[in-house]
């Protein structure tokens, strides 16, 4: 575990906590894409099936369990408890446009043609694009609450920090996972436009709004 990896994980954890706190305090999930949250639950579920097959550390197991549990809890809040505040009209991105191609790619390009390995690969590919319904929603409404932009910034920073972690691991541990690195770069690139808006607007105290 290097400092980039730890900061990445903490950023990911922070993002989830910001999202839960926003929903809990405001009793609302307005501006949040339920599609993205469903995709994240699918990502965590397919990736962390190794909870049953291998043990890495208490830290690793705890984080995995938290990510899985929080993703399903978020879905429960959005589609049940705070359903009335869910902005489904603006959450119109079609999940199958992501899940189907990503599933096909996971079958074709993977480290080993084994069920768990294919599911792991699927989760890595799916995570890289899972934010698209959320970004689509922000662009459709043309704005995002400040707390939502903090959530997105923390979530985007996590994979960027993981890239530094992979560079570090490559040089110091001779460690390299092409699938994770390529998908991680794609994932980070998708946030670039948002990062720019966050730095130029939100950090200067303005609300994130897109030009009409």
């Amino acid at each position: 575990m290097n400092v980039f990896r730890l900061l990445g994980d903490m950023s990911h954890l922070l993002a989830i906590l910001i999202l839960l706190l926003k929903m809990w305090k405001t009793r609302s999930c307005a501006g949040i894409s339920g599609k993205t949250q469903i995709l994240f639950a699918l990502v965590f579920t397919t990736r962390y099936l190794d909870l049953f097959s291998s043990f890495i550390s208490i830290y690793n197991t705890t984080m995995k369990l938290f990510f899985i549990a929080s993703s399903y809890f978020t879905i429960f809040l959005m589609y049940s408890k705070f359903k009335a505040t869910y902005d489904s009209n603006h959450d119109s991105f079609r999940m199958e446009f992501l899940v189907v191609p990503v599933g096909g790619l996971a079958f074709l390009v993977n480290h080993e043609f084994l069920p768990l390995e294919i599911l792991w690969t699927f989760s890595i590919y799916l995570e890289s694009v899972a934010i698209l319904p959320q970004l689509f929603m922000v662009s459709k409404t043309g704005e995002a609450e400040t707390i939502t932009s903090h959530y997105l910034f923390a979530l985007g920073s996590y994979r960027l920090l993981y890239i530094f972690n992979w560079v570090y691991r490559y040089y110091f541990d001779g460690f390299f996972d092409l699938i994770a690195v390529v998908a991680g770069c794609v994932q980070t690139i998708l946030y670039c436009d948002f990062f720019y808006l966050y730095i130029t607007k939100v950090l200067k105290g303005k609300k994130l709004s897109l030009p009409a």
Binding site: R5, D9, H12, D50, S54, I56, N60, M63, K64, F67, H111, W120, Y162, N165, W166, R169, G174, F175, F176, D177, L178, I179, A180
Partner: peptide
């Protein structure tokens, strides 16, 4: 380059 997978990550 030898490719090792990152299963110890989250």
């Amino acid at each position: 380059i030898e490719i090792i997978s990152t299963k110890d990550e989250l």
